[in-house]
């Protein structure tokens, strides 16, 4: 992608509420046609930043520029044609049909009584098509799944024809499939429709796979921006989580590993190893290459695992559940732990 002038830019931006500044001196940029993800701990002010950037909440100080023009100089109508939002909040009027809801996106473009011209109708059709919901146009919100409703809300933002779309937790409350679909849709919008997208999410794994860059926000320190890979390799991602006694392990499928995790050796069929690793991390252990100093697991088949303990005893188990029980039993017995610690201190 060619580097372009930033579409959205903040300069020394401070946000928050009267008497409660959440972030100070934010200097952030969004470039055209990219997806950016806001990363921060819960309650850190991600929603506040999104609200401030689309003019729903005044900034405490500093400047926001959209297309090189200060946000303050936009009329409500012009702003509504520049930035579209999709929120987590529930919508009322569940009897609205998908088409009518997407039609509301035409608001900033229609006249006094909001009559839809043919051009507006075309845009609505195209928006529904872009999110793959054309066949659902006549359905009511109440009849849809959370994932479908979210697509309709995104279609509304498309119908608004804004170059910038801000989404606050677009995948919250969605099932796994809808989460992936929503993120794929956003990626499609940025690639094919050249939309500039900024979203917040808790779905770190999906975000790492989808977005072009991260804005990492931490109270009391500067925002860190960059591609997911650079932030992981440079250790910034790990630092976001270090406070909670956890380390972020970039090598193990973007998972957060507890600091005092116990090493367990794993080898065997790669498709099984992935899930054994998952179970180990989840239960406070850390997958390692095979070694004699700690328990090791050979994954033969989904119903056959061989555990080799440091004392040389081998044991066969038939499921991951039995595997975890066996490991727990072995750990609760006195073991030559000193050796392990000296090796991995």
């Amino acid at each position: 992608m060619k580097p372009e002038a930033p579409i959205l830019q903040t300069h020394k931006l401070s946000i928050g509420y009267a008497g409660n500044t959440l972030f100070e001196d934010l200097n952030l940029e969004l470039s055209s046609g990219t997806i950016t993800c806001l990363l921060g701990l819960n309650g850190s002010g991600k929603s506040t930043l999104l609200r401030t950037l689309c003019g729903l909440q005044p900034a405490i100080s500093g400047q926001i520029k959209l297309f090189d023009k200060p946000l303050r100089q936009y009329s409500p109508q012009a702003l509504a044609r520049t930035v579209g939002v999709v929120l987590t909040q529930k919508r009322y009027a569940a009897d609205l049909r998908a088409y009518d809801l997407v039609a509301l996106g035409r608001h900033p473009h229609t006249g006094f009584f909001g009559a839809l011209k043919q051009a507006d109708k075309d845009v609505i059709e195209q928006s529904l098509e872009a999110v793959g919901m054309t066949s659902s146009a006549a359905r009511r919100l109440a009849e849809m799944s959370d994932g479908e409703r979210q697509k309709i809300m995104i279609a509304k933002a498309i119908a608004q024809q804004c170059p910038i779309i801000l989404l606050d937790e677009p995948t919250a409350f969605l099932d796994v499939i809808s989460r992936i679909e929503t993120m794929m849709l956003l990626r499609k919008l940025s690639r094919e429709h050249r939309k500039t997208i900024l979203l917040s999410t808790h779905d770190l794994e999906q975000a790492i796979r989808t977005v072009d860059s991260f804005w990492m926000l931490r109270r009391g320190s500067q925002a860190v921006c960059g591609t997911p890979e650079d932030l992981i390799l440079g250790g910034a991602m790990a630092s976001l989580f270090e406070k909670n006694g956890q380390t972020f392990d970039p090598l193990s499928e973007h998972r957060v590993i507890e600091e005092d995790a116990r090493p367990v050796g794993v080898e065997g069929d790669p498709s099984i190893v992935i899930w054994v690793n998952n179970a180990l991390i989840r239960s406070g252990r850390k997958p390692f290459p095979m070694a004699a100093a700690y328990p090791c697991i050979n994954c033969i088949s989904p119903s056959k695992f061989i555990i080799t303990h440091p004392n040389g005893i081998c044991r066969n188990v038939a499921s991951v559940s039995e595997l975890l029980t066996a490991l727990q039993e072995a750990e609760s017995q006195p073991m030559p732990q000193i050796q392990i610690q000296s090796q991995y201190a």
Binding site: L56, A80, V83, R91, L104, F113
Partner: peptide, 23 residues
């Protein structure tokens, strides 16, 4: 009758209405 258009925007809640350019 003059309030018809913003009333429709209000169906989505005040935040969405504001984003659609409604004061």
């Amino acid at each position: 009758v003059m309030l018809i258009k913003p009333l429709n925007a209000l169906l989505l809640g005040e935040t969405y209405a504001a984003n659609l350019g409604v004061n």
